[in-house]
Amino acid sequence: MNEKDLVSGCQHGDNVCRRHLYDSYAQQMMGICYRYTGDIQTSEDLLHDGFIKIFEVVRSFQYRGEGSLRAWMSRIFTNLSLEYLRKHCLRDAFSLEKYSEEPLVDAEQDLDRIPSAVLMQFVAELPTGYRTVFNLNTFEEMPHKEIAQQLHINESSSRSQLARAKAILFEKVKNYIRQHE
């Protein structure tokens, strides 16, 4: 079944198509939720809410070619995650902490040696505020001005949060490399 038919089936409430859509995208969307929340249980809750919302509003979705469905779903899960973080985690999540800034020998090569699941774990372990800004800037390619508007923070705060997030990840990568040498 191609994506068009899948969308059409979901638009008409076909449960087989709904299940097919879930099977096709659940793990990717779970990855997005986890990247934002850093918590498996919370991510599964968001996954549930997100798919329910998708099945409710899919009638308004217009298929515009390959990739459009995934982009649309990703946006929904990203927004859901941000909404969750705004309500539950972001109020005092932007305090700055001090991390060491020792350089890597070869950042690119070192990062390639680390499995994706470990990298995901590093992101998940970031403090909520850092993680959120890192996700928005790195994965959604959102400029700081927009991030600031989304999270109701200053633009400079967004910049410093991103810098701190990268510093923490850097530190974690270094530690991982050091432990697995």
Partner: peptide, 9 residues
């Protein structure tokens, strides 16, 4: 590495 990362559900 993580844009299309899939996590078991």
């Amino acid at each position: 590495r993580l844009a299309d990362f899939k996590l078991p559900v």
